[in-house]
């Protein structure tokens, strides 16, 4: 295991995703979600590496309209855009999505920053998670990180029935990461660097 800072989580994640030509904004969104997950005691690194692989192989979608169980919408890349879209257009979105914890992170971020109430349900209409007053509450009885068909919408009232929900708490950092996975992320990040040219060196104090 290696202990890393939240700043390193952010900066190495977005650079690694840039190395496979993911748009700047999507790479930065993903890095912010990874940092949020780390701050809230959730693992994220394996999903980032997997997302980069799937994106490379075109086995993942970044279209909110075109996604299937075989090519689900990438939560790591698109979740923040999705929650903003659902919130701004006041619509219900349904579709296949992977690594749902990044969607939970996006819901958590928009709840914290814009106090927007959202609800996430699975195909059976079980509540997976909802946001309320800057906090996200997650169904403790369900696996919240499986690729599946989901429904995301704004809400006014949640009927929680007898389900037990727990809130994600900040300051439970997961910044002790698998050494090999971290090395791989860093080596991907390194791909975004450029060997210095002689003109770049000129006047730079070499």
């Amino acid at each position: 295991m290696i202990s890393v800072s939240l700043n390193e989580v952010y900066s190495e994640t977005y650079k690694a995703l840039r190395s496979v030509n993911i748009e700047w904004s999507l790479a930065k969104d993903c890095a912010n979600k990874a940092k949020w997950l780390a701050q809230h005691g959730q693992y994220f690194l394996g999903s980032i590496l997997k997302t980069a692989d799937l994106y490379n192989k075109k086995d993942i979608s970044i279209s909110i309209n075109k996604n299937t169980s075989k090519q689900p919408l990438s939560s790591a890349l698109m979740a923040l855009l999705l929650v903003e879209y659902v919130s701004a257009n006041k619509i219900t979105w349904e579709g296949y999505i992977d690594s749902t914890k990044f969607l939970l992170a996006a819901m958590g971020i928009i709840a914290e920053e814009q106090k927007i109430y959202l609800i996430l349900e699975n195909e059976k209409k079980d509540i997976i998670a909802f946001t309320n007053d800057k906090t996200i509450y997650v169904n403790s009885n369900l696996d919240t990180n499986v690729t599946n068909y989901y429904c995301l919408k704004k809400f006014d009232f949640v009927n929680k029935k007898n389900t037990k929900f727990t809130s994600f708490k900040k300051n439970k950092d997961v910044t002790n990461l698998n050494d090999e996975c971290w090395k791989r992320l860093k080596s991907m990040a390194f791909e975004t660097y450029v060997p210095e040219s002689e003109t770049s060196k000129y006047g730079a104090g070499y």
Binding site: R18, T192, Y193, V194, P195, E196, S197, S200, A204
Partner: peptide
């Protein structure tokens, strides 16, 4: 603008001369 491999510092390249524009900072 790009990030150099040496010390991971930002650097300036000349568009018509230097390689690396595909990795430029936005």
């Amino acid at each position: 603008w790009y990030t150099s491999q040496t010390k991971l510092e930002p650097r300036l390249g000349i568009t018509k001369k230097d390689a690396g524009i595909d990795k430029q900072l936005p």
